[in-house]
Design a protein around this nucleic acid. Structure first.
Lengths: 124, 124
DNA sequence: TGACAGCTTGTACAAATGTACGATATTATA
DNA sequence: TATAATATCGTACATTTGTACAAGCTGTCA
């Protein structure tokens, strides 16, 4: 079954969506609490973003008491694929090597990590 | 000297900026011709995007004949750093490993590439 | 059962984005 | 030097994004 093409996820929405994945099931509150301290946005804003994500089809909700409990409606794989693809196209013309290179050079990755990746790449 | 903080580059702008880097010096025409066939946008649109990039400080231009020749005013390194950083934060909470993993698993990378990357990571 | 605390919903709105038309200016060239 | 070709510039405009207030529901607990 082919996935219907969903509208793109905006940057701010992306962050919220990631938190929903991370929490698995989450109320607006939950998401707010999980927001990185750096990026505090109002409860109401989070609500709107969740609403929009639902409208776009990325999440659904169920009622628990008076609260909405949101959860993913699309596999994160799917979203990641699109996002990474678009990002790569825009910034690197679609070639993943420069990106990996950038990540490798900028320190947050060490040789050990890469060894593991090699395994993955091998058995794809 | 610390780089003044420039306004963010939008997705569409990012693509245009990349083409300017790639061409080194480019007129609106040049950029249009370099656009991937997939993504054909009007001459006028490219113009606007270039104008905006200039206003934001990412490129400058010089006049040659009646045409504007645009060129980078900021090191691509700088833009890439910001873009990758933001992207990583939004989609992966800042952790580069899942991204590399994704890239490694999705085929476009082979063990040989990774070997090279390991080198880079090693001597950072 | 009535009040409260906590939620959602409707609505708003400025700024950014994506896209482009039409008018004007400039350069070669006939 | 008039003209055709080609650029730019000003402007426009529908959408999307980011952010949020205020009004109205709804369980809950006294």
């Amino acid at each position: 079954m082919t996935q219907k093409k969903l509208p793109a996820v905006s940057p701010a929405e992306t962050e919220i969506l990631r938190l929903v994945w991370q929490l698995d099931k989450a109320t607006v509150q939950d998401v707010c609490n999980k927001l990185p301290a750096k990026r505090k946005i109002a409860y109401a804003t989070v609500q709107t973003l969740l609403r929009r994500l639902e409208k776009k089809g990325y999440i659904k909700h169920r009622i628990r008491g008076k609260a909405h409990v949101f959860f993913a409606a699309v596999k994160s794989e799917h979203v990641i694929k699109r996002s990474v693809g678009d990002f790569l196209d825009r910034l690197f013309g679609g070639d993943p090597i420069p990106l990996m290179q950038y990540l490798a050079e900028h320190g947050k990755i060490d040789a050990g990590d890469i060894e593991k990746l090699k395994q993955l790449a091998g058995k794809k």
